[in-house]
Amino acid sequence: MSQKNILLILSHAPYGDAYAKEALDIALTAAAFGLPVSLLLTQDAPYLLLKSQQPQQIQQKNFANICSALPMYDIENIYIEARAAQTKRITLDQLVVPATFVNQADIALMIRDHDVVLRF
């Protein structure tokens, strides 16, 4: 199979709508297919990784648990838009997986350097 890589950019927070869940399903499937997948969390998406989520009362699956499986799916390149994290006062130690902050210039280059870029 070809060595195309995928950059998946998420922009929505969890729970309020289906974007994040449906985008993550694409990431997990593509990774299970053997495609190298990088994940970039922008705008409201950094909230997906918060350890402190407890969605039992709204009867949803916990995104903290789902996202903590990303390394098991060989999705280890997880990036967070630094600007978005700052405005939300989100720090790396609050997150379920190791991630890297990137600035706007990094993001532009990441988009250029991936073969397929999907944004949700």
Binding site: L28, T29, A31, A32, G34, K61, N62, N65, I66, S68, A69, M72, Y73, D74
Partner: peptide, 11 residues
């Protein structure tokens, strides 16, 4: 239990 996912082969 941990991830709330049925794993694919790789994981």
């Amino acid at each position: 239990q941990q991830y709330e996912l049925s794993p694919a082969m790789r994981p």
